[in-house]
Structures are given as structure tokens and as C-alpha cells.
Design a protein around this nucleic acid. Structure first.
Length: 415
RNA sequence: GGAGGUGUGCCCGAGUGGCUAAAGGGGGCGGGCUGUAAACCCGCUGGCUAUGCCUACGAUGGUUCGAAUCCAUCCGCCUCCA
């Protein structure tokens, strides 16, 4: 397995681009030079927790970086933290995490790898579960590991320190996390470890541990955390401010349009998937006022759609968006049901709240009543009278029902 | 082991016997304006074919005509002391 780096010297700036931290200073350059000298690819570690099964753009920042290393000829070692997931990474958590079950972990890991394949070159990816070595540890091994750090050292960690100060609980188990995570680097002989900036402490722990196990210390590279579509909080599934890699192109475009202007430069850099030079050019023109914000955001939306759905998907998604929100027209590809599927009560009439819950995804009858009362239900573009709770099937046949701005349902005549 | 504190709706947080589906804020949703950005304005924000009924204030049991509010036990979390 030889290196096929065409121009190793030139790959350094690109590989370090966007990184929040690259430690120690100059470490990456040395690693790259040494790899070339030895004629072997570097082993690039990325540890992931199989606690959530949906990969979103936030995860893609670091996955994308890993892919860049692969493209430069190096080996990706993707560690599924099946064992560490039992402990729970305390990063960014205000409370202790509940432990999750083995089946959940397995299922999450499987979907994670499937989705990661959209970013990574899986032929060049070594997927490992850390239960492989952590599960095999004896009590003696554990003693040896935990004796390498101290309580004071662990309490230096910002999130522990904050929680400790705020009188919140910190379990002994959680304090084990950085050590176990760091041990992964020992187990797989990592040369470089990637992570988000929230992982800095963890990845440095790996760097600290390796020499005491007689291995050269890894270089660490942390990537900035992408803000979500709200522009303030870290992108996460639980906050609902995310764009998933499996989202439809229209969703990707639409969600991108909703981000605050201030988040655009960051998104261009970390999420657009555009080449380094191009995205920097866009950011510069946006800052100078040469590129209007709306146009920039549209470009961003198209780029993201294209990144995951290929050429053409961007302009198609944009057209869909314009139909919906600019022209306020009904899009072509809306779901439809047959009038015969409508639920009918004893009087042969349709109870609207129930129907909206059943066919248009509203959370409850009360929510549906609220929508009707607030005038956000339209039939063929006409706002439904606020007091209407029942309708005859004939009135609903062959119409387009709309709730809010983006939920549509066509009711077809015929069987 | 001892002493004390605390637990409210998605989150924060008021509420110490009926007027409490529970103030206020945040978030979210809907509408207006717009570039589905921001800012701003208005409304809504437990469930139920519903002038009422059900569920809900850590858990269980009790006192009372009536409990988030009083009592008992238990559980979680925190602080100080050992």
C-alpha cells in the first residue's frame, strides 16, 4: 500500500485548512514528512459515539476533513465507541447521560457507517469498535490506565469544572470517559486524531497517554463546531436545528435559506463542500458587499444540495423553493390521497381535526383546531372559516388542502 | 453516618388549601412584514368529535367537601460536617 500523494508539500495547507487547533505546533507537518519518508500512510483516528443515528452537517465537518486525509493517501480509522457509549461523553452535557442498550448501539453504529459512507471512502476506512480492546481489559489494566491521570487534571476540564461549580452531579463513570477514549489511540496506533473543538480535552488525553504506553504521541487536529440553522447553538438533532445527510435536496435548500446571515461565512467554510479557494472567494465577496446576502445564501443552499445529491439537485431544489415561497404556488410533487380514504363519521361528514391529524401529520386534534382557528388551513388557496370543524366529502374532493406554508395534501376524486 | 437544602408543564421559573391546565420568561408553532435571514408586530402553545370530561406539579399512601400547596414513607440531586 503505497502513498499516492502527488505533491505532499502542497497538501499541508489544505489539510490544515479550517482547523481550530493543530497541536503540537508543526506536528502535522512533521507527521506528513515522516509518512512520506517511511512510505507509509498515516493512521487518522476519528472516534464517534453511536448514540445518535442521524448524521448531519455538523458531523460532516470532521468527516469531511477525514475524507481529505484519505484523498491525500492516508488511512482513516473510524472508531465506533460502542464501549465508551456506555459511559457517555460528558462533553457539552449539563447532566449525566443515561446509558443506552447494546441493541441500540449496534443499530446506531450500522446506520452511522451507512451514512458516513456518503462522505468517506469506505475502501480506505478501517472501522473498529472500541469494545474490542476496552471490553478485554482486566481490572489490573484499568488500574494501570486510571493511575495515569489525576482528579485535579480531570477537573481542569471545562465542562466538569462548570458542572462541579454549579453543584451538578458528575459520576465516576463519566470521569473515566476521557481515559477510555484516549486509550483508543494507544490501541490503534493513531498518528493523527481528528475531532470537534469540544473534543480537545479528549484527544489531548490520547496524546498524553500514548508515550506512557511506549508509543509516539499522536498529533491532534480539532475542527470548529458548526452552528445549527438557528445560527446560535451547535447543530444537533435534539435541538432540531440540523440538516441531515439523508434529507431531501429541497429540505437542505430550504433549511439553508433559514439560517441567519451572520452564519453564512462559517457555513461556506465548513458545510458547503466547495473547494477551499472557491469558498474563500465567496466569503470575501460577501464581506465586501459585492455578493448580496440573498444570492450568497442561495449559492450555499445549492452547494449543500449538490454535495449530497449530485449535480442538478441544487437548481432543482431552488426552483422548488421559489415555487413554494416566492410564487406561493402549490408544488407539483405533493402527497395525495383518494377521497375514498377520508375518514367519515356516522353522519357521512368529515371531522376536520381528526382528518388533519391522520393525513397531514399534525400532532393532535387540539393542534389541528388551533390551526383552523388561526386561519392557517387553506382549501384551494382559500382560508378556511375559523369555525369549521366538519365538512362534506364532496366539498373536499378534488381540492388541495394546505396547512401552514409547507404542508400540502391533494385529495383526488375517484377510487 | 450527621445536619441542612431541593425536585413544578419542552426548558428556566412563580405559586404554601378552593378564583390553578397552573403567573412570567425562553423555546416552539401560526399569521403579518421580508430575502422562509435578522429586527419588529399580533395570536397560540396538555389531551379528548368538547359549553363538558380526562391527565398533569419526583413516587406512593394519607388528611380534607376540596391538595402543586398539609402529613407520612420512599426515590433523585446538591451543600456542609465526618
Amino acid at each position: 500500500m503505497g502513498l499516492d500523494m502527488t505533491e505532499p508539500a502542497a497538501s499541508l495547507p489544505a489539510l490544515a485548512a479550517n482547523a481550530a487547533d493543530a497541536l503540537p505546533a508543526g506536528g502535522l507537518a512533521k507527521q506528513l514528512a515522516k509518512a512520506e519518508e517511511d512510505g507509509r500512510p498515516l493512521r487518522i483516528k476519528l472516534g464517534v459515539d453511536p448514540t445518535s443515528s442521524d448524521i448531519h452537517l455538523g458531523h460532516c465537518v470532521v468527516l469531511g476533513k477525514l475524507r481529505e486525509f484519505q484523498d491525500a493517501g492516508h488511512t482513516a480509522v473510524l472508531i465506533i465507541g460502542d464501549y465508551t457509549a456506555r459511559v457517555g461523553d460528558p462533553s457539552q452535557r449539563s447532566k449525566s447521560r443515561p446509558m443506552i442498550t447494546g441493541e441500540e448501539i449496534d443499530a446506531n453504529a450500522k446506520t452511522y457507517v451507512e451514512q458516513a459512507a456518503r462522505i468517506l471512502d469506505m475502501d480506505r476506512t478501517e472501522v473498529r469498535f472500541n469494545g474490542e480492546w476496552l471490553g478485554a481489559m482486566s481490572m489490573d489494566d484499568l488500574f494501570a490506565l486510571v493511575s495515569r491521570s489525576t482528579v485535579a487534571r480531570l477537573l481542569e476540564r471545562d465542562d466538569f469544572a462548570k458542572r462541579y461549580k454549579a453543584n451538578e452531579s458528575i459520576t465516576m463513570l463519566e470521569m473515566l470517559y476521557p481515559l477510555l477514549q484516549g486509550y483508543d489511540s494507544v490501541a490503534i496506533d493513531a498518528d493523527v486524531e481528528l475531532g470537534g473543538t469540544d473534543q480537545l480535552y479528549n484527544v489531548l488525553m490520547g496524546r498524553d497517554l500514548m508515550p506512557s504506553y511506549g508509543k509516539p504521541a499522536q498529533t491532534v487536529l480539532t475542527m470548529p463546531i458548526l452552528v445549527g440553522t438557528d445560527g446560535t447553538d451547535k447543530m444537533s438533532k435534539s435541538l432540531g436545528n440540523y440538516i441531515g445527510v439523508l434529507d431531501a435536496p429541497e429540505e437542505m435548500f430550504g433549511k439553508t435559506m433559514s439560517i441567519p446571515d451572520a452564519a453564512m461565512p462559517e457555513w461556506f467554510r465548513l458545510a458547503s463542500g466547495l473547494p477551499h479557494a472557491e469558498r474563500e472567494d465567496v466569503v470575501a465577496r460577501l464581506a465586501s458587499g459585492e455578493l448580496p446576502p440573498n444570492e450568497a445564501k442561495r449559492l450555499l443552499g445549492r452547494s449543500i444540495a449538490v454535495r449530497f445529491h449530485g449535480d442538478g439537485s441544487g437548481t432543482a431544489a431552488e426552483a422548488h423553493f421559489d415555487t413554494l415561497f416566492r410564487a406561493k404556488e402549490v408544488p407539483d410533487d405533493i402527497p395525495s390521497i383518494s377521497a375514498t380514504q377520508l375518514p367519515v363519521n356516522e353522519d357521512g361528514r368529515i371531522f376536520l381535526p381528526g382528518m388533519l391529524v391522520e393525513h397531514m401529520g399534525l400532532a393532535s386534534g387540539n393542534e389541528a383546531r388551533r390551526m383552523i382557528t388561526q386561519g392557517s388551513v387553506k382549501i384551494d388557496g382559500e382560508v378556511l372559516d375559523a369555525s369549521t370543524l366538519e365538512m362534506d366529502p364532496a366539498q373536499l374532493t378534488g381540492v388541495v388542502l394546505q396547512v401552514g406554508k409547507r404542508r400540502f395534501l391533494r385529495i383526488e376524486a375517484g377510487a
